[in-house]
Design a protein around this nucleic acid. Structure first.
Ligand code: DGT
Ligand code: MG
Ligand code: ZN
Length: 629
DNA sequence: GCCGTTTTCGGCCCGACTGTTTTCAGTCG
């Protein structure tokens, strides 16, 4: 990853890449390295790349978050700061690259991006720099940003420490606290000084964001504990977990309870607790030994709906909802709806809250302020795809490559899931003799699939596919005649994910243009929660997928969730077929389908967009159209 | 800085908890 703000690299290129490059099985990768000339266009009419440098939406968003934080320390107007923060969120959710929108001159038509921010985006895209930020950083030392990360330390205190004690770094702050120099500052005391030291310590060993899988496991344990406690009438997940966001910062849990004081005490003195961050009668917060944090809120059952809605968020969704309430002369909070006369209407059922504001109930996965409130007001929310809609899994592994179960075991597990189709897609040989399948193994595997098929009869249809590696030179790991012999071909990147944008994009495009390839799996190769994926030119990838009708995979593994919600939503809007696959390496892996479905739901997808919800005959027709037998 | 079936100017979510206060500011969710 590049640092959040650094001048982008200058590039220009103009040549052409072959329509697709035939795999030359058995030859050295170096023999075909010519497919990456220094200059290329993507062989599309009108798609001559004159891109001079590039910043991803994520990188642009990081710039605006940085501006917002520096302005907070500076003491700038809060509403201006909110505008930068909202713009950052908008950019992260776009899917389409901001550079493409800028090229059309349409940045200001994006909600939350006005004239000032659009100009800054354009300056960043054209020059890789931003004068406004450079001047801001001369006024406010950027090293102060690390102080903001200390829990309990906000912009006011950072400014105070900076101006009164010349504290510029985390080390400065630690030293000042240890020497007792903070307690005499206005608004500070011994306790707050000690809590800063504790905050710095926890920052050092604080764990990063969790994967959804880990978070749900922990949440189920804690919900079980809560439900076993006296007086708990209901306990439910909330926050990013309930919205199925791709990674989880902390566990947010809510309970219905009439007198939660004793329960809050039990919660903060649970044996797994390393530190109590706060304890009151309405909410408490703890940090566990492994660094994970849990936030617990309580309201009586008659207010549970309002509480659950609040704690589910997202923050931006909540703010929009509260603004809507305001316009109707109401005031919304976790306690309920307050009318102008000052009467509090408690709300037991979340759906009643949305109804009171004239809205359809909004599925938690949509609550990100990405247009869901407007759609709910028009009663035009999508009918989101569900786990029950899924009829096939088109990506799994067996003992023929790095899976741990046989074809029959995987097939029987798929039947248990109610699937009508399972594609066996073992790895091509790039992983080496042990890991991958050589082309000469394929006929024997085909025979085994046929035998299992005969044994299982019409309970399920088995397809012989393969997950074919796109080699680091862009060549498919199986030659065309081998690809042509398969029922389904998945192509994916596994190696050299750090190649420069144009090079790794060219690899992926080469696979998409290969007429035998049906699905592009885990397109970026990222590994959650920490390892970012390939730096793809998404606009080129979208265009190629659209042109060739190739399906884009949502890989359902909680450590991938790749493609992500934003890119999937935009891809589907272009008509690109979406497939949700588990990439299971054992029967248990098939259970991860629900995480992939969650990504699809966050991408606003209805079932027909997802090809593995289709009836078998329709799926087979699709494959046939793509030249399969 | 953004935005508009109440506005192109004047609004912009709202409450809990903590530690410092002698009535509240700061931080957080
Ligand atoms: N109204 C309102 N609600 C907020 C605000 N900040 C947070 N919330 C609510 C909505 C959030 O989903 C919920 C939990 O806060 P978190 O900071 O844990 O965020 P969230 O769980 O969405 O993401 P996370 O994965 O934890 O980073 O609290 C706010 O400023 N205003
Ligand atoms: Mg959270
Ligand atoms: Zn795989």
């Amino acid at each position: 990853m590049r640092p959040p703000y650094s001048p982008a690299r200058r590039r220009a290129f103009t040549c052409s890449l072959p329509k697709y490059t035939t795999g030359l099985f058995g030859t050295s990768p170096h023999a075909v390295s010519w497919i990456f000339p220094p200059h290329l266009d993507y062989n599309r009419p009108g798609y001559s790349i004159m891109m001079e440098l590039h910043m991803t939406n994520q990188e642009l968003a990081d710039v605006f978050d940085r501006i917002a934080n520096l302005m907070k320390i500076q003491g700038e107007m809060v509403f201006k700061i909110r505008a930068y923060e909202r713009a950052a969120e908008t950019l992260r959710a776009l899917g389409e690259e901001a550079s493409a929108i800028a090229a059309r001159g349409e940045l200001t038509s994006v909600p939350g991006i006005g004239k000032a921010i659009a100009e800054k985006i354009e300056e960043l895209l054209q020059t890789g720099r931003l004068g406004f930020l450079e001047r801001l950083e001369e006024e406010v030392p950027p090293s102060l940003l690390e102080l903001l990360k200390v829990p309990g330390v906000g912009p006011k205190k950072v400014a105070l420490f900076w101006k009164e004690c010349n504290i510029l770094t985390l080390d400065d702050l630690k030293k000042a606290a240890e020497e007792g120099r903070l307690r005499s500052l206005p608004g500070m005391g011994e306790k707050s000084e000690a809590s800063i030291l504790a905050g710095i310590a926890s920052l050092a060993q604080r764990s990063r964001r969790m994967t959804l899988g880990r978070a749900w496991e922990a949440a189920q344990r804690w919900l079980g504990w809560l439900r076993s406690q006296a007086g708990v009438e209901r306990a439910e997940p909330a926050g990013s977990l309930r919205r199925w966001k791709e990674t989880i910062g902390d566990l947010d849990l809510v309970i219905a309870h009439r007198d939660p004081v004793a329960l809050m005490q039990a919660f903060t003195s649970h044996p797994e607790v390393a530190r109590t961050l706060g304890q009151g009668e309405n909410k408490s917060s703890i940090e566990l030994r492994d660094g994970a944090r849990i936030q617990l809120w309580a309201q009586p059952p008659e207010s549970f709906g309002a509480l659950w809605q609040y704690a589910t968020g997202s923050k931006d969704h909540n703010v929009r909802l509260r603004e809507l309430a305001q316009k109707k002369g109401l005031s919304l909070s976790e306690r309920g709806l307050l009318d102008e006369a000052g009467n509090l209407r408690r709300i037991a059922d979340e759906a009643d809250l949305y109804a009171a504001l004239g809205l359809e109930w909004i599925p938690p996965e949509l609550r990100e302020d990405r247009g869901e409130i407007e759609a709910a007001a028009r009663h035009a929310l999508p009918r989101l795809v569900t786990l029950e809609d899924i009829r096939a899994d088109l990506h799994c592994h067996t003992t023929w490559s790095d899976g741990v179960s046989t074809i029959e075991e995987m097939a029987r597990a798929a039947i248990q899931h109610g699937y009508h189709v399972l594609a066996i897609t073992d790895h091509s040989s790039y992983m080496g003799i042990v890991g991958g399948m050589k082309p000469e193994d394929l006929p024997r595997q085909k025979a085994e699939i046929a035998a299992v098929q005969q044994k299982l009869g019409d309970q399920i249809l088995l397809l012989q596919g393969a997950e074919v590696d796109i080699r680091s030179d862009g060549v498919m790991d199986y030659p065309d005649e081998v690809l042509a012999s398969l029922d389904l071909v998945i192509a994916s990147l596994h190696t050299s994910l750090r190649q420069p944008r144009e090079q790794i994009t060219a690899r992926l495009l080469n696979a998409i243009r290969n007429p035998h390839v049906d699905i592009i799996a885990h397109p970026t190769g990222r590994l959650l929660p920490d390892r970012s994926g390939a730096d793809l030119d998404w606009q080129a990838v979208f265009a190629a997928l659209q042109e060739h009708g190739t399906a884009l995979e949502i890989n359902a593994s909680p450590s991938r969730l790749d493609a992500d919600d934003a890119h999937t939503r935009y891809a589907a809007s272009l008509g690109i077929p979406i497939v949700i696959n588990t990439d299971a390496h054992a029967p248990g892996g098939l259970h991860e389908m629900r995480f992939g479905v969650a990504v699809a739901r966050r991408a606003w997808l209805e079932a027909p967009r997802v090809i593995n919800t289709w009836e078998t005959h329709r799926l087979l027709d699709w494959l046939k159209q793509r030249g399969k037998r």
